[in-house]
Amino acid sequence: MWEWIFTVIFTIEYILRLISIRRPFRYIFSFLGIIDLIALIPSYLSIFFAGAQTLLVFRALRLLRVFRIFKLGHFLTEIHFLKQALRGSLRKIAIFLLTVLTLAVILGSIMYLVEKRENGFTSIPESVYWAIVTITTVGYGDISPITPLGKFVAAIVMLIGYSIIAVPTGILTHDLAIAFKGKTASLETCPDCGYEGHDSDALYCKRCGSSLRVKDVTGKKTSP
């Protein structure tokens, strides 16, 4: 019953949308329009083909109703800010992950030399796997150090993992805060201290006071 109630509601919404917009065919063949139509078709197909054994495969179309969730993105403007933040932090997070991977290779190699094969660290890739699992605080426990020196190295790896696990979150949060400032925010970096997040019309750095831009003879602001 509830299934048909929601199907009718979505059908009415789809028809009203076609009536209210100026170019209905443009909406019908758009990405969101196709998703809306696909979300409605399975329910009506079940009316005509419910008793046909050979057409039970059409029931699989009901799975396509999950595409309705994509409609929410059309109304949530916050997704724009999230995309902008992800785009701004992508390079920073990539550099961070590369640094963590390099650190995992170094620590895994050290653990391989300390623990040897008889303690489960049969190869450097296996030891690097252990380092990644430990740094990310997953800790499967399938490989663990036995020697006192190995346990000491493992303790250092655990502390490193706890200290860096929140770095990507901080990077994304910083860029997300900048994105929410809208047009008043700028990603311009101070040439002296490297601070980001100045106002779009800022001439001096908020942190160190250094000049960000200078005005040319036309009165426009340019980079120094």
Results as ranks from 00 to 15, higher is better:
Ile41Tyr: 01
Ile41Glu: 01
Ile41Arg: 01
Ile41Thr: 03
Ile41Pro: 00
Pro42Leu: 04
Pro42Tyr: 01
Ser43Pro: 07
Ser43Phe: 13
Ser43Gly: 06
Ser43Ala: 11
Tyr44Arg: 05
Tyr44Ala: 04
Tyr44His: 05
Tyr44Phe: 13
Tyr44Ile: 09
Leu45Thr: 10
Leu45Gly: 04
Leu45Arg: 03
Leu45Lys: 04
Leu45Ala: 12
Ser46Gly: 04
Ile47Ala: 05
Ile47Cys: 08
Ile47Gln: 00
Ile47Met: 08
Phe48Trp: 05
Phe49Gly: 02
Phe49Trp: 02
Phe49Arg: 00
Phe49Thr: 01
Gly51Trp: 02
Gly51Phe: 05
Ala52His: 05
Ala52Met: 11
Ala52Glu: 11
Gln53Glu: 15
Gln53Arg: 08
Gln53Met: 09
Gln53Cys: 04
Thr54Asn: 05
Thr54Pro: 00
Thr54Glu: 10
Thr54Tyr: 09
Leu55Trp: 00
Leu55Gly: 01
Leu56Ile: 06
Val57Glu: 00
Val57Cys: 02
Val57Met: 00
Val57Leu: 02
Phe58Trp: 11
Phe58Gly: 00
Arg59Lys: 09
Arg59Thr: 06
Ala60Asn: 10
Ala60Tyr: 08
Leu61Lys: 03
Leu61Tyr: 03
Leu61Arg: 01
Leu61Thr: 03
Arg62Trp: 05
Arg62Leu: 04
Leu63Ala: 09
Leu63His: 04
Leu63Cys: 10
Leu63Thr: 07
Leu63Ser: 07
Leu63Val: 11
Leu64Trp: 03
Leu64Gly: 05
Arg65Tyr: 07
Arg65Gln: 13
Arg65Met: 07
Arg65Asn: 08
Arg65Ala: 04
Val66Leu: 03
Phe67Thr: 10
Phe67Gln: 03
Phe67Pro: 02
Arg68Ala: 00
Ile69Ser: 11
Phe70Tyr: 11
Phe70Asn: 13
Phe70Gln: 13
Lys71Thr: 08
Leu72Met: 12
Gly73Ile: 11
Gly73Asn: 08
Gly73Pro: 03
His74Arg: 14
His74Trp: 14
His74Thr: 12
His74Pro: 01
Phe75Gln: 09
Leu76Tyr: 05
Leu76Lys: 06
Thr77Trp: 10
Thr77Ser: 10
Thr77His: 09
Thr77Pro: 00
Thr77Ile: 12
Glu78Gly: 13
Ile79Gln: 11
Ile79Phe: 12
Ile79Ser: 05
His80Ser: 15
His80Met: 11
Phe81Tyr: 14
Phe81Leu: 07
Leu82Thr: 15
Leu82Phe: 15
Lys83His: 13
Lys83Met: 15
Lys83Cys: 14
Lys83Ser: 15
Lys83Thr: 15
Gln84Met: 11
Gln84Phe: 03
Gln84Glu: 12
Ala85Tyr: 08
Ala85Glu: 08
